[in-house]
Every structure is written in C-alpha cells, then in structure tokens.
Write a protein that binds this DNA or RNA. Structure first.
Length: 211
DNA sequence: TGCCAGGCCCTCTTTAGGGCCTT
C-alpha cells in the first residue's frame, strides 16, 4: 500500500460542536508495511481536562499548562502528514476534530479518511468487539502502552490496518490493497463483500473472487 | 438538577429504536 498516516486524537470530550478541543495528537506514517515516521504532541487549547478524561487518558490540566498551543501543533501535524491519505479507528470521531481544528487555521483537509473499525466489521465479521484494544488483543497483535494515549493508540491502529491488509490479501485474495480500496470496502454492504469471497457479486477493483 | 454527539449497524426494521465506538 502507498503511504498512509494513521492518526489519533485525545480530546476533552466527544464533540467539537459542543466546544470540546484536542489535548493530544499522534500521526504515524506507514509505508511498505511498516511504520516509517511518527509525530506526537500534547497541545494546550486553554480548556480544563474533565476528571473523567483525566482518569481515562492520564492527561491532566497541569500537563497541558506548558504544552504548545493547539494552533501550533495542528499546523505542524498537518504539515507532517501533508497530502497522504488518513486512517483512524472510528474515523468519524477523529475526522470531526481534524476538520474543526484545521478550519480554525483557515485550512481544509484535502485527503480522505479510512476507518479501521468499519473495515474490520466487514473483514472480521465475527470479532467479539470492535474496540481498538479488543481487536488488537483478539488478533494477537502486540499492544502499545499506555493505551488511551495518542501515540500508543495510533500505533495499535496502524498494526490493525496492516493486519486487515494481510487478511484482504490472503483470505480475500485481494490483488493489491490501496487506501482507495479500503475506502470502498468500508462503505460496502457486508453481503457484497461476502459475495466476493464465494466468487459472486459485481466486480470491485482490487478484489477477485476466491471460488 | 439533568442532560449532553453522531455515524454505523442490527433487528422483534424501514413511518424506529437502541447498542457500539470514539474522548
């Protein structure tokens, strides 16, 4: 697969529309089946960290006091990933924060997101859970520590993405796995993906039946 | 004080409701 950037936000809450802001971001560049570069930074948006979030992530208001401003970090990480396609676990969450923070900078995202959770739901339909940590554990992938910190979660999501890529190539006999193919799979009805497994259904670029 | 987002996906569905997943 061509290079992609797997990103993960820690934030003060669930919704930028309700005033929540990022507290930390990590971006992991993946190329040729391995991590080739990393970016990680705490960031200070001038908001206190709610107690629940501090317990979850270990990121406290005091830790953010001397962190660089959110505007500086977001500009830096946006330059770090450039135009490389983006990946995240439950990407609808990260894409909302990414777009909201770039908008504050007068910038706009030019690349698409792939969601490892949506792809996993299709490629691994019998997984007991689609939480990032649970998927990594059930697949026997090495966990990154500490969980619920941006870099560890981004690295685990990148390992999950590479495992999904392997599943598509080996079990689904996928000729080549591209970001564009993952973007199509994550929108594909589960029944359609299964149809390809038994050599039926319409043509999908990059996939061939395994009858 | 009580409540709070939103897209996806399943089902006892589709004129809906509720769980999952992210922090």
């Amino acid at each position: 697969m061509d290079a992609v950037a797997v990103i993960d936000f820690e934030t003060t809450g669930l919704s930028p529309l309700r005033g929540d802001r990022p507290t930390e971001i990590a971006a992991v560049l993946v190329a040729d089946g391995r991590i080739v570069d990393r970016y990680q930074s705490l960031m200070n948006a001038g908001l206190p960290v709610p107690p629940f979030i501090e317990r979850l992530t270990g990121i406290s208001t005091a830790m953010l006091r001397h962190a660089p401003p959110v505007e500086h970090v977001m500009a830096e990480v946006a330059d770090f990933v450039g135009t490389v396609p983006l990946v995240a676990h439950n990407a609808v969450f990260d894409s909302r924060f990414w777009d909201a923070e770039l908008s504050r900078l007068g910038r706009q995202r030019g690349q698409s997101f792939v969601c490892t959770m949506l792809v996993a739901r299709r490629v691994l339909p019998r997984a007991p859970s689609y939480k990032l940590g649970a998927l990594v554990a059930s697949l026997g992938l090495p966990a990154a520590e500490p969980a619920h910190r941006a870099l560890a979660d981004a690295e685990m999501a990148s390992r999950l993405m590479l495992r999904l890529e392997r599943e598509l190539m080996e079990r689904f006999q996928c000729v080549s796995v591209t970001h564009a193919l993952l973007a199509r799979i994550q929108r594909m009805p589960k029944s359609q993906l299964h149809a390809h497994l038994v050599g039926q259904g319409p043509e999908v670029s990059g996939l061939r039946g395994s009858s």
